[in-house]
């Protein structure tokens, strides 16, 4: 079970308090009617699924209820960064805590 730092609550909490929300920074086209079918299905269905550093959404459902983003290494499960929804992904996540 991961320990996930919630940027709103300001503390690490166990994973059972959270729900995973898929890949982060997948932006819904502001005007969906203007995009091609291909661009729309890319938005709907295609995710990067990397082996390594990955930005993902979490929601602190049993806590503050907020969505936020986490950068996690999918190989080691190390959490490299945790930041509020809407904030840019940290350029080079530093290992604040392992």
């Amino acid at each position: 079970m991961l320990l996930i730092p919630c940027p709103y609550c300001g503390m690490e909490r166990p994973e059972i308090e959270f729900r995973h929300g898929g890949e982060a920074h997948v932006v819904r086209p502001p005007d969906p009617s203007a995009v091609t079918d291909e661009a729309w299905t890319d938005y709907l269905y295609f995710r990067s699924n990397p082996k390594g550093v990955y930005a993902e959404r979490w929601r602190h459902v049993s806590g503050c209820g907020r969505f936020f983003n986490v950068v996690r290494d999918t190989v080691s499960d190390r959490i490299l960064a945790s930041y509020r929804a809407g904030e840019p992904r940290p350029a080079a996540p530093v290992e604040a805590r392992r």
Binding site: P29, D31, P32, S33, V35, D37, W40, T41, L44
Partner: peptide, 13 residues
């Protein structure tokens, strides 16, 4: 309505 959740997909094949 210009948009709602799911609207754009109704035009997919």
């Amino acid at each position: 309505k210009a948009d709602f959740v799911g609207k754009r997909s109704l035009r997919l094949a």
